[in-house]
Simulated assay, not measured.
Amino acid sequence: MKRVRPLKALMMTVWGVAMWAGCSGKPAAPAAPPPREVEVVTLAPKEVRDTGEYLGSLQSRQSINVLPQVAGYVRRIHVRPGQKVEEGTPLIEVDAREETAALDSAEAQHNSTEVNLELARRTLTRTEALYKEGLASAQEMERAQAQVDAAQAASRSSAAQVAQRQVQLQYHVVRAPFAGTAGDVLVRVGDFVSATTSLTSVAQADVLEVSVAVPSTRARALKPDTVLEVLDAQGKVLISSTLFFVAPQADPRTQLVEVKAAFRNTIGLRPSELVRARLVYSTRNALQLPALAVVRQSGQPFALVLEEKDGKTVVMRRPITLGALGEMAYVVEGGLKEGDRVAVSSLQALRDGMPVKVKSTPAPRAEAAPSGGGVATGAIH
């Protein structure tokens, strides 16, 4: 009997099965597709912050409007707007010719009294000598002593007048009371000024205060060490400090409570500038879920969690409760636990109970991001 080669026999068997299937009218079942590869994130607790953003205003801790102490015409302006000045730097000079003349007159009067005092003393010395020799009476002695006393009193009075005129003359040069930055110069040479005329301002910008008004309900959670952060337009922290002042009462009209923090100005901020400010009310550890991993249906958020069933890795849709949204991540308040693996890719193609395969290079975990509510609104004490 002739033997059939194994390969030929195998081909005949496959052909026979195909013929049988064709004759029976039932197509062969297709092979199951391989599990879809997905990226996952493993949940772990991270520090999250309860924050609120508000509009803050910057104030100088040392700022003053400069007024003259005398009346007169502006003779010279020594400062430019925005110029850095040191303590005692001349700012404005008021015409002092009249006061200078008065000082010269007072000094001349003082010189005259000094001459009279010297003459009275010499007269007293001669009278004392004559009195000892019996050539002068006691009345003449008393008269000479009285002239010396009167001349001394006149000398002291004239000296006081000179000192007064010198002090008054100094008022005609308005100087910076402390180091800072000069504001706009509001007068011009030739203007007449009085003691109520505002000349310019001097503000110290090295140390600034940021003032924020917060709702009274949130102010109850504030503590002396509460952190306040100054942000730029993109939300990046420019500088941070801690509160040193919380108003003891709310504004009766707005029901807002003023809080303040002070910081050393190393970033070029200016007094009276409006800035974004963020208060950190509290911090805690919580799970965070990337915003892209959240699936919503009828307003209910879900997460696709990887589970092991029958030796396979499948995704299960699980309802979750979300907290505040930070930067690209939600705070998870319920529905998930530490160690859960959540799919973060191909979410639209995944179905409940569908087998999946974790990619060999998982997606990086979401960084902890500040979370907060409210409307958008460093340390010196």
Score class of each variant (00 low, 15 high):
Arg318Cys: 04
Leu322Gln: 07
Glu308Pro: 06
Ala286Gly: 10
Gln288Val: 15
Ile320Glu: 11
Lys309Ile: 14
Met328Trp: 05
Ser298Thr: 13
Thr313Cys: 02
Lys312Pro: 10
Val314Lys: 01
Val314Asp: 01
Val314Pro: 11
Gly311Val: 08
Pro319His: 01
Val295Lys: 12
Gln297Asn: 12
Ala291Gly: 10
Thr321Asn: 08
Pro301Leu: 04
Lys312Gly: 03
Ala291Asn: 14
Gln288Ile: 15
Arg284Thr: 12
Leu292Arg: 14
Leu292Asn: 13
Arg284Ala: 13
Glu307Leu: 07
Ala293Arg: 02
Gly299Arg: 05
Thr283Val: 13
Ser298Leu: 14
Lys309Trp: 03
Thr313Leu: 14
Pro290Gln: 09
Lys312Phe: 00
Ser298Ala: 15
Val305Phe: 08
Ala291Thr: 14
Val315Phe: 06
Val294Phe: 12
Ala303Asp: 02
Thr321Leu: 11
Thr321Ala: 12
Leu287Val: 05
Ile320Asp: 08
Pro290Ala: 10
Lys312Glu: 13
Gly311Arg: 10
Ser298His: 13
Asp310Glu: 11
Phe302Glu: 02
Glu327Phe: 11
Glu308Ala: 03
Ser282Thr: 13
Arg318Val: 06
Ala291Tyr: 05
Gly326Gln: 06
Met316Cys: 02
Leu325Pro: 13
Gln297Thr: 15
Leu322Ala: 07
Glu307Val: 13
Arg318Leu: 10
Leu289Gln: 07
Thr283Ile: 00
Leu306Ala: 08
Ala293Asp: 01
Gly323Trp: 08
Glu308Ile: 04
Glu327His: 13
Ala324Tyr: 12
Ser282Gly: 09
Glu327Tyr: 14
Leu304Lys: 11
Leu289Met: 07
Ala324Lys: 13
Glu327Ser: 13
Gln297Trp: 02
Gly323Tyr: 05
Val315Glu: 02
Gln300Cys: 03
Phe302Val: 06
Ala291Phe: 02
Ala324Cys: 09
Leu287Glu: 06
Thr313Ala: 01
Gln297Cys: 00
Glu308Asp: 09
Ile320Arg: 05
Pro301Trp: 07
Glu307Cys: 05
